[in-house]
Design a protein around this nucleic acid. Sequence first.
DNA 1: CGAGCTTTTGAAGAACGTCAAGAGTTGTGG
DNA 2: CCACAACTCTTGACGTTCTTCAAAAGCTCG
Lengths: 244, 244
Amino acid sequence: MTDMDAYERLIKTFTPRDDLSSDDIALLRSMPLRIATYGKGEEIIAQDSEVSESCLMMTGWTGRAVYLESGKRQITALHIAGDFVDLHGFTLKYMDHSVVALTATQVAFVRHDELKKITHVSPHLTRLFWMLTTIDGAVQRTTIASLGRRPALERLGHLLCELDCRLSVVGLAQDHRYDVPLVQEELADILGLSVVHMNRTIQDLRKAGLVTWQGSRIVIHDFGKLTQFSGFDPRYLNFIKRER
Amino acid sequence: MTDMDAYERLIKTFTPRDDLSSDDIALLRSMPLRIATYGKGEEIIAQDSEVSESCLMMTGWTGRAVYLESGKRQITALHIAGDFVDLHGFTLKYMDHSVVALTATQVAFVRHDELKKITHVSPHLTRLFWMLTTIDGAVQRTTIASLGRRPALERLGHLLCELDCRLSVVGLAQDHRYDVPLVQEELADILGLSVVHMNRTIQDLRKAGLVTWQGSRIVIHDFGKLTQFSGFDPRYLNFIKRER
DNA sequence: CGAGCTTTTGAAGAACGTCAAGAGTTGTGG
DNA sequence: CCACAACTCTTGACGTTCTTCAAAAGCTCG
């Protein structure tokens, strides 16, 4: 994990969803990448800015944050290793949100002119990059359903199930155990709750015996039970290999 | 409006965001379309199904509905003329939500093999189709921010501002007047509220003097005031012409 | 050890949901 | 054209969920 290079990281983002040809891989490897690091709390991309490159997560956690006029903040998405945080910037240019490093973070930037080149030479890779943005949309729809129709406890349970799946795929969770290096205020901004209610909801989840949660370490005791309780169905994550 | 053909409709979806060359237009016109109509309440695409075509809205209103185990429903997006409701199905195939006709509806289906062909022959059109799905993502992020951090009244105000903008572009709103052919239960499912609270929120909005709302007819008295009140910033809709 | 951050607790209130019923509207069949 | 059924909107009463304010307790790091 530690010494995985950025190209391998990128390749491993695609392979759970479709096979890559050796030409595909060679083309990916031909793209220049710019590695950058950020400290905890740093802003990687500013809300309302215009972008000409997009960033792939190597290590750490980032979030997409929307700051409202009221001073409130909503984190609309959480990103971990292998996620292309702002690939939508390739077609939009305008950033409707900021990207913040929630932990120390290493990312690899790809210039948009390189992505544009790919749309000219590889329809298949183009569709795969496109797919990454539509999977992102699927995750967002699930978030909308959670925020709109699930009470706090189920919302939290659903998030933990999603993180379990996503972290497992990149080797950051085993046996339904993983670290969530976020403070409760950040979790509250993800789940649309106040910090106080976030804290009480976590305690409720503990009391329900569904998870052990000490510091940043989370252990899900009965994953099936948690998925059922929170209405989690992993299919929206599209971890399925098919021709795309 | 009434006798606009499906190709014109499609072209008009792109042109507010980027210019099309005559080759682009010819290519779009070469795609076979299948026109279909649906009655109010009919399901156009079933949740959890696999799709091999995507549909462009010609007339009417549709919504993306997620049905939860609890029996609750969340409408994650609203679609009107010119919207490509399930273009993400091209890269995902799996539908994590259903598409329902909220009014009588006419749509044009495009087969995915035709879209695939486009990825082989037109990088530019490919990026434009891709853009439609990323704009969709931007709208979803705004929805997440609304559901997570805005109280009911502002949430409703924000929705009305968004609809005003989107309907105006396709000629279905003038002078901040338009029709919303939805019952309050549907609005509640969009805004994540109960029907009763939806009703009271609409009444609050009326009392605040911000809109007149009789039957399906909505008149926004002071659009600037409403945008300010609800924190609406239209930039996320990406109605800006630029090279994509 | 102390400052600053994070978690936790209590108490009070606001926002929103649920239940139940009445009023208004629309559509349909006789 | 009327009557009735079904749907939609509205209102009231009450309960629950969640927020806000305030402060205490625990943790971390220099």
